[in-house]
Design a protein around this nucleic acid. Structure first.
Lengths: 227, 227, 227, 227
DNA sequence: GATGAATGAGCATTCATTCAT
DNA sequence: GATGAATGAATGCTCATTCAT
């Protein structure tokens, strides 16, 4: 099943409260993870609430305690997947690194995430298209966030200036889709091979082929060394 | 409305029969085109049979004469879009040209097709994901066909050998998605800018950066000259 | 079952059309009549759509062809009952008669109607209270119509002037309720006894006790003579 | 909120027990009063148990300690409203007074009660119709009780003999409905005007117009004097 | 053959009631 | 004892498919 994020805050002392709140949060994450899988396997439209409660092992009433309805459930699932991915990147990427390093590393983390949790990735990329208005809005917002990051790359290299206006939007959604399609077929092992290819597509438009190559090689060495 | 392919064979002489068969085929194409738009605009799941018969201006009974059901309708729509695209490529691309030329030209045709008929493209790339088992199978088959063509590129350049097994599958679906996302936003005008970028992604892995550049430039010149 | 109104227009000649339109209208009236009974017997809230389709012998789909939903069904039932009662009164009461005669005769018709179709009466008086917003609005409008007629009685006698503003509203709903309660118990035979009592309550406030008595006696004689 | 009846017996001495039993009874009355309002405002069917516990400020478990279920809650609410009204009448009406005096005074008390607590009145007259079998039975029983009292008026005047068998049932429920409709519109101020009219309807059938008038005038004078 | 009215299985959602804590 | 989270049966409604005309 789609993995859980590690409980975030855990410094509390008082026992009873912890246990209650923590167990609730854990349950919530379990439910969201189970729903992620159900949505991913059946598709947003085809997944029935009955499928969801069967998958999450909650009752009908429990479902409507957690969520306002099926669409709300999907939106929360979507948000959780995005949040988990963002958290992973936040933890892994040095905030004071330069753009190229952040982009390279972020790409790697994303690919690894998608490789580990293809169903979660499917939610964000594919099912969001049929998950109702709210889900579409979230999808758009997420793509814009990624695009906004990429756009900062225009200041990095001499090639940024000549790019078309919406270039980053295409790159952002195209890349995620690339991952998704690939991983949905179960080729998780290829993720490692895929990474340089993807990173190259990200970097080249901004840095040019030569510097992109340099950056990638450097990152690769560093990664190998850190093992 | 999504455009019709020109009637294929038209060398027949006998008048009554022709007229009958031709009119039926024309009607069939009209219906499929109308259904393409309905599916694209509403999504496979949300489109009701009533929407389809309203869009195609046929009766309920007529619908079930043409199609076995809603899913069959979608599959036929899907097949028709693919067939039309293939026909266009078949007509445009010289069958005895080398692989690089075919790839370059085919890419251009595909991009132009998607730019002209974004709704049809949406059917193939997006809605096929929620169009039932059969549709998914066709989607997979289509991607594999494209991938099979690409794979022949491995014999062309010295770089093909080191590519991962499933490399072409990713490229195939990734590229189509790139188009779709871009065109769904209404940026039809950018298609022209998009083409070299896409073609580069297709050619480079097989030919290397330098020869890819050459091929593209040559194709571009030829295209400009043919105008 | 709650009785049907006689088909209204019947002078058409063309056979096919008549038959079609007439049968549809007849079916419609049958369905409304059956729904009237179901709503009356179970109450608006307790009646399920399944009860209604079982009672009207239509399918689920048929129900939603006829009605937008359960509330719409109730509103249409309500409107039909009111329309039938109004039609009866319109036919029976001479339009150029004076107010007292109209009131006397109208009261008789209403009582007879309620005696014949207690379930229909229950719809208008009781169930309308729990039949949703639209039904409540219709109820209010109907009561106001009756009240408006009664109010014209203020010009007839010397007593009208001293009546409180909302006097007619109370009288209107009170009287119908009186009928309903009485008839719901199955005492349909008493309707004959009830009539003079009710008419008296209607007339006295406007005409005074003496003239009310006169009018009633005259009406009674006329009615007896007409038999 | 619907008012509470004064605690009934209070002659106990022992402090702890009193306090315990009294507090429980007080709580019970508070809960019933709150539920009265919830049922009256939302209607029996629309009121959810959650609404009731929110209104009565008790817990879910508490609710099922007090009541067997929603219907039982409604029945108890109904019974309490009837009991309070009866208690008021019992206190106000001299038990050895003649029938006419009791009827006149009782009518006044009832009207005043309905004017003060329209929501409570709504429970008895309107919502009881949709409050389930038991509630309907109680409604019938209550109406019969009132009718039984009225029926004793047949011995009082020379007119009682010719009245139809079920005359009193109609009068009883009709009158209460008259009040309800009137008060539901918010015309609480009119209650004073309404009283003579209602009392007249009650008395006349038994005493005849003249004696009814006398009795009413006498009661009116007495009432004025007692102020 | 062609039509579109009729069918009814299936779905999302609500809420009275129970029972573990 | 008191609490309120969990349960799941029941309901209003949609829509793919059939079949009488």
């Amino acid at each position: 099943m789609t993995q859980l994020p590690p409980a975030l805050a855990s410094g509390s002392v008082e026992k009873g409260r912890i246990s209650r709140a923590a167990r609730e949060e854990e349950r919530r994450q379990q439910v969201l993870a189970a729903c992620t899988d159900v949505f991913a396997k059946r598709g947003y439209q085809a997944a029935t609430v009955e499928n969801l409660i069967a998958g999450a092992k909650i009752s009908m009433g429990g479902f409507y305690k957690f969520f306002e309805g099926k669409e709300d459930c999907f939106v929360q699932v979507f948000d959780r997947v995005v949040a988990v991915a963002q958290e992973r990147i936040r933890i892994a990427v040095a905030p004071d690194a330069n753009w190229a390093a952040q982009a390279t590393f972020g790409t790697r983390i994303l690919i690894e995430f998608a490789a580990e949790q293809p169903l979660a990735a499917k939610i964000v990329v594919l099912e969001a298209q049929t998950g109702g208005e709210e889900a579409l809005a979230r999808y758009g917002a997420t793509v814009r966030e990624v695009a906004a990051f990429l756009r900062r790359g225009r200041d990095e290299g001499k090639f940024g200036g000549r790019l078309p206006e919406n270039f980053e939007d295409s790159t952002a959604s195209g890349l995620v889709w690339l991952l998704q399609t690939r991983l949905a077929r179960g080729d998780l092992g290829d993720a490692e091979d895929l990474y340089p290819q993807v990173a190259k597509v990200v970097l080249e438009p901004y840095l040019g082929a030569d510097r992109a190559q340099q950056v990638l090689r450097a990152a690769s060495d560093e990664h190998a060394a850190s093992r």
